[in-house]
Design a protein around this nucleic acid. Structure first.
Length: 279
DNA sequence: AACCAGGGAAGAT
DNA sequence: ATCTTCCATGGT
């Protein structure tokens, strides 16, 4: 059954349902540009903003473009059926009931590439700080926030800036990949590729390896037959298969074989559950 | 002090 | 092709 929401002007209202939870959706590691407020959250995507107000009867989104955020929060997708299908696998039972309100956000490809270039071998609070700093300095000033810079704006950032805001060795990755995105690298090709082909293509960007490529494909291109495998997912794997010495790529391929087109969803439930519980 | 964080590049085998 | 080492930074 699909989500039952209503749109009134620039407001979206989602009545209480197990298939939508803002906290779970924002804090499951897929997005970095949001902050908690008194009554909920504020979320930023490109040059859009949504105020999210958690009420007794449901969740209200006050935004600049309701259509944009209906798509962003994937509100027209039937997650109940996805969860029902995935729950047949005992590995997922607990994780799904723990994060049953997760939605996979439909983010912008460039914003996703830059964000997950920064994410590698890094922790979430610092990732957020670095992205915010880039927006503040090079993004368009909007009403109470800064937009994510356009590709053209990104192309004007000197490598020195990435160094100064403590990107560490990722400064070169960001600088080099932005140049490439401006010059010859064609993201439109990805839509006509299989996920494996697209993964390989994305690794032509410096700093993008197998894992970051999977994140880009899942969050930026909505390809769900991928399974980003990071340190947390490897811990999950060890929970079910103790003293396994499989590499990240082996774990990744095993999960993709297990979950097929629903791999991306499965990954989110497992990641969120493991990271929140941290045991 | 040593280890970890949503890993990946480069060089050695 | 697979295995090591090193890579900045900040927190524990």
């Amino acid at each position: 059954m699909a989500l039952n929401y209503t749109v009134l002007g620039n407001e979206i209202f989602i009545p209480n349902t197990p298939d939508f939870d803002v906290k779970q959706t924002l804090e499951c590691g897929q997005v970095f540009r949001f902050k908690p407020t008194l009554f909920g959250y504020e979320v930023y995507s490109l040059n859009h903003k949504a105020q999210i107000i958690c009420q007794k009867e449901g969740t209200k989104l006050i935004c600049d473009n309701a259509k944009y955020f209906v798509n962003y929060f994937d509100l027209d997708k039937d997650y109940a059926t996805i969860k029902q299908e995935l729950s047949k696998n005992s590995i997922l039972e607990d994780a799904i009931s723990f994060g049953e309100g997760i939605r996979i956000l439909k983010q912008d490809p460039i914003e996703t590439i830059i964000s997950f270039l920064i994410s590698q071998n890094n922790n979430i609070p610092r990732i957020k700080k670095i992205i915010e700093s880039i927006c503040e300095t090079y993004g368009e000033k909007c009403d109470g926030y800064f937009a994510f810079p356009t590709l053209n704006e990104l192309s004007k950032i000197p490598k020195q800036f990435f160094t100064e805001i403590k990107c560490g060795y990722r400064d070169e990755y960001l600088f080099s990949s932005i140049q490439k995105l401006c010059n010859g690298f064609d993201l439109k090709l990805i839509n006509s590729m299989t996920s494996n082909e697209a993964n390989k293509y994305l690794t032509e960007l410096k700093g993008v390896g197998n894992k970051v490529a999977d994140c880009i494909l899942l969050y930026g291109f909505y390809k769900t037959d991928v399974f980003p495998t990071d340190t947390w997912i490897r811990k999950v794997y060890l929970d079910f298969y103790p003293n396994s010495n499989k590499t990240a790529i082996q774990v990744r391929n095993e999960f993709v074989n297990m979950f097929g087109n629903l791999s991306g969803y499965a990954q989110q439930y497992l990641f969120y559950s493991k990271r929140e519980k941290n045991n």
